[in-house]
Design a protein around this nucleic acid. Sequence first.
DNA 1: CTGAAAGCGCTTACAG
DNA 2: CTGAAAGCGCTTACAG
Lengths: 335, 335
Amino acid sequence: MATIGDVAREAGVSRSTVSSVLTGRKFVSPETREKIEAAITMLGYSVNAGARALATARTMTLGVVVRFHEAEFSPALATYLVALADAARESGYAVVLLTEPDGEAAVNKAIAGRQVDGLVLLSVVEGDPRLGPIAEAGYPAVLVGMPEDTRGIDSVDLDFAAAARLLVDHLADHGHREATFVRWPDKVYAGGSTYAIRFASAAEKRAGERGLTLEPLSCSVGPEQVRAALRDELGRADGPSALIVHNDAASAMLQFALHDTGLDVPGDRSVVSLHSAELARLYALPFTSVESGPDVVAHAAIEMLVRRIASPDAPAEARLVGPRLIERGSVATVA
Amino acid sequence: MATIGDVAREAGVSRSTVSSVLTGRKFVSPETREKIEAAITMLGYSVNAGARALATARTMTLGVVVRFHEAEFSPALATYLVALADAARESGYAVVLLTEPDGEAAVNKAIAGRQVDGLVLLSVVEGDPRLGPIAEAGYPAVLVGMPEDTRGIDSVDLDFAAAARLLVDHLADHGHREATFVRWPDKVYAGGSTYAIRFASAAEKRAGERGLTLEPLSCSVGPEQVRAALRDELGRADGPSALIVHNDAASAMLQFALHDTGLDVPGDRSVVSLHSAELARLYALPFTSVESGPDVVAHAAIEMLVRRIASPDAPAEARLVGPRLIERGSVATVA
DNA sequence: CTGAAAGCGCTTACAG
DNA sequence: CTGAAAGCGCTTACAG
């Protein structure tokens, strides 16, 4: 493999001049630059990342901390990972996967081993133990997911409150007066998942303002249980004219429950939902929905992290990404 | 951050002695070793990966080349990525994500930049352009997916032929005499996807041996089209007693088609399928199936790659991972 | 505008 | 069994 010395020799200049064109930090005369560039392509030279990292104390790689075995539960995870890697590459960074079961240990190791310049924490939850070491070390990081207390760490997330308002407005605009609010299992709210809480609070508030009555339906865990709960709800003779769903399992199982009960959307019931594009695609979900946009979130996360690495002392930012309504015709207009 | 020099000073030894305990390559007296270890924990020292990489010419990181936007189509991708990272970590390697849209460029860049010691190529297809640069450079790599011509590169994949035999035997053992073979779209076979071809050939051969008649049903693309095709097939008055499915979309949509036609499994039709555990979980698929085992495949891939890095000149290996039958009671016994 | 020199934090022969 | 020295491939003041 060619080194900077080979290039220098080939171009007839010193190593530092080659370095200058490599880093772009110094002016080099066009003629010299051209000679150097020619030498580079002719030798197939490419800078040794490790050596550069050693000299600059910057690895130009970012760590993505994945929650243990999250892969089993999140259809959107792969999309996030690829989107993060894409965004990072655009900023000149590589991405390493940190999958250690103990997330806190993973973070500690990453910080101590300085193999990365910054960390992206995926699926951050309330009281996430991974935040501790980062906050203490003042290490550059960005949270995807927004806990109540971000410990002074930058964070980015879907604007769940805005999403809820969008969905409620959509139903109200179509004349609906009451809707079943299919929620996550109670323990999700009790566990302090802020996204669930932010959605629910905003939905209730906006519903009140728009004269829409929300009947909460808490689902338990497990596809079959969720399906049964939905079937029961749909089977009610005097049920609401619409459903507003914030529960991935319920969104997925709703079609089965509709089949079970022989009901039609939007003929018999109108449906709006909050779920990822992956879920929609995987289950071919035909519901008008608000999506979380992994690409947008990932790009924002990387942008914030890169900025944070450059300015460690800037004030922390909490960024909410605006929701997007995907119209799928699952809402009927009622008189 | 503490350096090896700090540790040496703290322990009252030379830097090379510290290095000896770090690498474990030389015998160091227990007393000295203990002093050094104490100094390490007391200083919170951790070796600088970049410096070590520079000195050893080994980065201890592996690159995973993801096919462009594969995330959109493969529910198993996240599982593979996490499993690969896990397995790599167990061998002391980190994993970086290479997501460049142009896979060939990604490979070239990775080789030229020597940021990784080896490459894992995910979802390798027939005529995959990523193989060229690897074969030419003789670069350490392992393919997940097994094309006809591996170009002398190690590869690992599910044993699709064995999987097909397992499924055919399962139906035959339960007395079935004819089955609809729900295949991928024709172009998949025409495009040379060896996994599809290996499955189909073995299924047909074994079916012949077991006296099971296979009626091929080629599905087109798109969930609704697949669903319609299945509905038509299930609606046939004289249809076969069983279905053997090798088509993810069909496996996913089969439940809907069953609902559409009011048929019951295994009462009206028996079903066996080849699909990933992710698909099964995401769609709550209730079919007896053979699974590809991302964990097993990922571990095998990393093991092979690590070995290849150690012995660049060993003969290439093509490893088939045995299938596992997951019994879900979707096959009835016929007289 | 270009070059000689020092240094980033390790490892590894080589002496002792 | 331990240490002094060179070197891995870069970058970055510092001279010129």
